[in-house]
Design a protein around this nucleic acid. Structure first.
Lengths: 344, 344
DNA sequence: TTGTAAGCGTTATCAA
DNA sequence: TTGATAACGCTTACAA
């Protein structure tokens, strides 16, 4: 009875979303019937259902998921927090993750951060504001206080390639250290005499792990090596690193770049500026296996991050996940032509 | 694993978001005071305000924007609908657009479609479900009925490089036709005798415009040319196109590729499989100016899409836009080394 | 099967 | 400056 005095005729005025009430009115049924029809819960007779669907169609009705989320249903929103999303590896990962999430009926906010704690924290706060079911941190390290808040609010938090040690967060890691060690082994097997590691000023846990795996293996093998950090993780930094290293009196003849982008810049400069023959004079190994690594101008030998698998795991953890679990994924060497198969 | 049978709906400690009511209770004030404090509207005394902020801090409170959107405020959600988001051009654009949008306090859903009408429509429906303020269609063509529904519901719809003629949608276009014509002029000036256009099986309006601009100019200049479509818009299709064209008895000596990715695949194959010297034997022009185009192995002469400007325009239109406007952006030629400067 | 009514977390209105 | 109270659009007991 306590029906509102007079709803100003929910006609198709431009600018107002159609609500279940409008549909109910038009179909001559109650709001609940409309709700039941669209949420699938409860039962509706075929006749009413048809009337409702038709009214909804005519009005252009679309259930308001925001309001739905208010009553306690999951929001179906997942927050992807990342930096440098225009770069090949990151964008490839986001491509796969959004695809997987969508396949499970989720919708993804992509939040583009600068990677620093402040902007990652801001992103996490947005995730909270929109009641996202889960926050997936692909780059940067959030403040652990904020992560705690997310967890306390019932959000799932998934850290990809981060080394945070908060309890209850899920972690997904790729074994960069092992790849680093294997890179050294490959260079050694190829007969390289002076090896080097090209890294980045961005000292993220995943980059550091690769470096350290390489360094540890070098130390164990009694091989000296240096680490170059000429800039952030980019093609240009690879170029710059090559200028630095290959201009020396005793340049390296075997290089592990912690990222393919660095490796490609390094290769180009080694060839076109220093006229090196790869792999005869110089062996180069990358990491990621971005699409460009297999382009004919490069043929980069690298370690492949299994992004489909990473995306699948992320989706699986977000959907039904077990909190506080850490998963480690292996990285696979991809042989192409930037490393000699035998001793020089 | 979680049993579908509902638990007796007890209150679960972990897993409930903190609400304004909780904060109010803890601070010993009313809900309204809390609301006023966080929404900025109305006035609160410094004392109450401090108490509230402290309680909120302790509880880890974050206002629920979903509920806020319910009362009529803008949701601050923008939907970005795109395909192939792992590719350089698309991901670069998304990077810029999300950045701009965030700078204006918006948050972006990125919906990854297959580009076909069905999946684009699905994306648009999601946009409606979440009461996004605006839908930005970066790839694919949505059904115009659905676009109408969005508009009727007060959403802003922005079509980027689409040729839809719905009224009231905003349109942002890049002048591909002119670039196509200019490409022909450049090849002609370089003294190319047999020109060709390498395109894609994906007949999107933007790709077609580039092709047609080239074709029209060729016709006007009385130059014969063919169009090759060996696959979708990718590096591999560029490779395949080169195999097809350069294997002929009378291969082209000037090629316009409607996308940089196609151009790079073409270049690699021309050089490494057919041993062409670029630009001496063969001139190649691309379109987009993706980061890889300037890498030392390529030095591709191309047309630059002004993505910062595109992103700015998108943000401006979404924020304060004037509906039904079409903006055309010019494309700039970027001279590098894949086209001769003088006649051969 | 259907409708009524309560509740979800906000904000806006209006008294106090 | 404050605090009730009524929306907002939805779901879901509960009653008819």
């Amino acid at each position: 009875m306590a029906d509102p005095a007079d709803p100003p005729s929910g006609k198709s005025e431009r600018g107002t979303f159609v609500s279940a009430g409008d549909v109910a009115e038009r179909a001559g049924v109650s709001r609940s019937a409309v709700s039941r029809t669209f949420s699938g819960a409860g039962s509706v007779s075929p006749g009413t259902r048809r009337k409702i669907l038709q009214a909804a169609e005519e009005l252009g009705y679309h259930a308001n998921h925001l309001a739905r989320g208010l009553t306690g249903e999951p929001s179906n929103i997942v927050c992807l927090i990342a930096a440098d999303i225009g770069q090949p590896f990151q964008s490839g990962l986001i491509e796969q993750v959004t695809r997987q999430l969508q396949a499970h009926g989720k919708v993804a906010f992509v939040i583009n951060t600068a990677g620093d704690e402040e902007s990652v924290s801001h992103a996490l706060r947005q995730s909270l504001h929109y009641r996202a079911e889960a926050s997936v941190v692909l780059s940067g390290t959030p403040s652990s206080r904020l992560v705690e808040t997310c967890l306390a609010n019932g959000q799932r938090v998934l850290l990809v390639n981060r080394d945070d040690d908060a309890p209850d967060v899920d972690r997904l890691q790729v074994d960069g250290a092992r790849a680093g060690a294997e890179a050294l082994a490959l260079l050694k097997r190829a007969g390289c005499r002076r090896v080097a590691c090209v890294s980045s000023l961005a000292r993220t846990p995943s980059l550091l792990a690769r470096e350290e795996g390489f360094a540890a293996a070098a130390k164990q093998a009694g091989i000296a090596h240096g680490v170059t950090r000429a800039g952030l993780t980019s093609y240009d930094t690879g170029v710059e690193s090559a200028r630095l290293l290959l201009g020396r009196a005793e340049p390296p003849d075997g290089v592990f770049c912690v990222t393919d982008l660095l490796a490609l810049g390094f290769m180009d400069t080694a060839r076109h500026v220093f006229h090196r023959d790869i792999p005869r004079d110089l062996c180069i190994i990358g990491f990621d296996d971005i699409p460009q690594a297999r382009w004919a101008s490069y043929g980069l030998t690298t370690f492949r991050q299994p992004i489909e698998e990473i995306a699948e795991r992320i989706a699986a953890i977000v959907i039904s996940g077990a909190a506080g679990r850490t998963e480690m994924l292996e990285v696979l060497p991809v042989w192409r032509n930037s490393v000699r198969m035998e001793q020089a």
